[in-house]
Design a binder for these strands. Structure first.
Lengths: 343, 343
DNA sequence: GGCGGCCCTGAAAGCGGTTACATGTAAGCG
DNA sequence: CGCTTACATGTAACCGCTTTCAGGGCCGCC
């Protein structure tokens, strides 16, 4: 039989109200009473039942984290950031992998309001805005990562994808590459769109014509990167560099290049995006745009908890992080010889 | 103002008991009444409050997942398996990264019993057995992954680490290697111990003497793998192959080899353990032992949910998976030339 | 026609806490 | 000395739901 506050009260010869006051530090409790209560708790091995508490306080100290796919190496770091900050603040996190499926997203959103979570961190959701609006109507604060939520306006944390992509592409251009291919993310996703836009921006600033044949669409997986580049090689469209929309795709692309006998970076330079943990250890080590993933997770969670406590910045608040170019071994200046044969 | 069951009852002109019966399918409800209730729910946008429900039913439909570090690429797949199965069964999962810190593990365990989770999945815990025993006393079912919990006996899911390690090492031996180094996991962890044991077993079966200078200890990270092998190279102890206790370490080791001018696998063969997602895409693609991570997550969760429902197999039940050798490009027969120079 | 059942429903007692309000006591003060 | 005041505690309502128990109709059946 688990001890309840009632048992503690009885044993300490006080009322449950006093025990509760003692537990929460609300209201005064005499030193001697305090001592008796401590004793009782100790002896009984009492732990307050948070469910009962939540029922009356209407706070569960639980945050929900909705994300597409934890299997993508980009996310674990984010999760860690969220987790750690939540922990510091006495919150606990409910993990929901929604697999990029709008129906599941909606289902989960429904469930969350029933579960009375205190707040929700929505990362890269793909569902319609009405779905989110409906959810928000329950009054649960939300913070969004990489997905703009206009109505109701929710705090947004993201990196400047466009600029990052531009920097990545400019890096390649500065190395002398003119035929830069791009493996994009899933079409329709804002992130993919932004990164593609950054790529085009860099091209156009450098006066290089945009060639849509050089853009293959992927879905942020290694498989797609591999297949995309394999297919591109089959078309015999020449290129000397690749900017992949994320590291996974870059790694897949590199594998496709290697399997077809090309060398990276001697024949083709490759740059990715994200700077996942293993990017430094692939061979060649991957040049990429670092996203401060862990930090973003922390910051987003901080904003969320603030929102839970009713402390919000102005509406439409945003925290934007900048991507940082990390030059490693997968990119190098275009070789003169290479210019001639262009792969 | 959020609608409660009381509001629904009022609007449908029935009692809360009837609404509850309708909601849970417990007890009969007349067709017409049913219809009125549906209407009311619809109009009010009512969602039952699971917190209140849990208070009385004593079931939260929440499972806790305690793991060392989600950042290790081995885990996300596991999490996914857990997540998906939990989802199918109507459970939700609370994520706790304990960072391999016994104190945090204990803290979390405490919190979980207060949070009234229905069950807990403990993966690779390092805390003392008394801690776990104390937790178990709260009556919360647990299932353990990769850590034997003897008292109270909890179902255990794991792979046969020893055998996997033996197979990995045997693979190297069969390729003609005799000087096989090993990057171990953190000493003291059962998993590390088992994998080391498997390595030694293979050596001894093949009549190869065990040389402790060939064993460097790591902690399952790339950094440690890198540094371990770098250090080993400095000692000038010759070796022609490496069996790393996990893929991360293998990748780090490969990087160290490459950075020092060695080629993998021409100069040194490398095999890992885990078969993380990216193992197939490193270059060279990594030979490794595949753990059916996703499946293990599912199976463990299944056992846990069964336990929650009081359906347990016999005491001391175990599910053991077998590791499978996946031969890729990072291992090859020892070259004649190499035998002479032995790195 | 009376009666045992079967359906369907409602009243009310909790689940384990929190908290507004009331109460009792002793100190402070003119 | 009587009155306020602050402190320490108790009483009881309530959070939103489930569930036991006890009917009230209505049927069939003897």
């Amino acid at each position: 039989m688990k001890a309840t506050i009632y048992h503690v009260a009885r044993r300490a010869r006080v009322s449950t109200a006093t025990v509760s006051r003692f537990l929460n530090g609300t209201g005064p409790v005499a030193a001697e009473t305090r001592h008796r209560i401590e004793q009782a708790i100790q002896v009984l091995g009492y732990r307050p039942n948070t469910v009962a508490r939540s029922l009356v306080t209407k706070a569960t100290h639980t945050l929900a984290l909705l994300m597409p796919d934890i299997t993508n190496p980009f996310f674990p770091d984010l999760v860690k950031g969220v987790q750690l900050l939540a922990d510091e603040r006495g919150y606990t996190v409910l993990l929901c992998s929604v697999a990029g499926d709008p129906a599941r997203e909606e289902e989960y959103l429904e469930m969350l309001s029933a579960k009375q979570v205190d707040g929700a961190l929505l990362v890269g959701l793909v569902c319609g805005r009405e779905t989110i609006a409906r959810f928000a109507r329950h009054g649960i604060p939300i913070v969004s990562l990489d997905r703009n939520i206009d109505y109701p306006p929710a705090p947004l944390v993201h990196v400047n994808h466009r600029k990052g992509a531009r920097i990545a592409t400019e890096h390649l251009l500065q190395l002398g590459h003119r035929l830069v291919a791009h493996v994009s993310g899933p079409i329709g996703l804002r992130v993919s769109h932004e990164r593609l836009a950054g790529y085009r921006e860099a091209l156009s600033r450098a006066g290089v014509a945009y060639d849509r044949r050089l853009v293959v669409s992927g879905d942020f997986t290694e498989e797609a990167g591999y297949e995309g580049i394999e297919a591109l090689l089959h078309t015999a469209t020449p290129f000397t560099a690749i900017f992949a929309a994320n590291d996974l795709a870059a790694i897949g692309a590199t594998a496709a290049l290697t399997d077809s006998g090309r060398r990276v970076p001697e024949d083709v330079s490759v740059v990715g995006f994200d700077d996942i943990r293993l990017a430094a250890y692939t061979s060649p080590a991957l040049t990429t745009i670092r996203q401060p993933t862990y930090e973003m997770g922390r910051r987003a969670t901080e904003l969320l908890i603030d929102a839970v406590h009713g402390r919000m910045l102005g509406p439409g608040q945003q925290v934007v992080f900048e991507g940082e170019l990390i030059v490693r071994a997968s990119s190098m200046p275009i070789a003169a010889a290479q210019q001639a044969k262009t792969v």
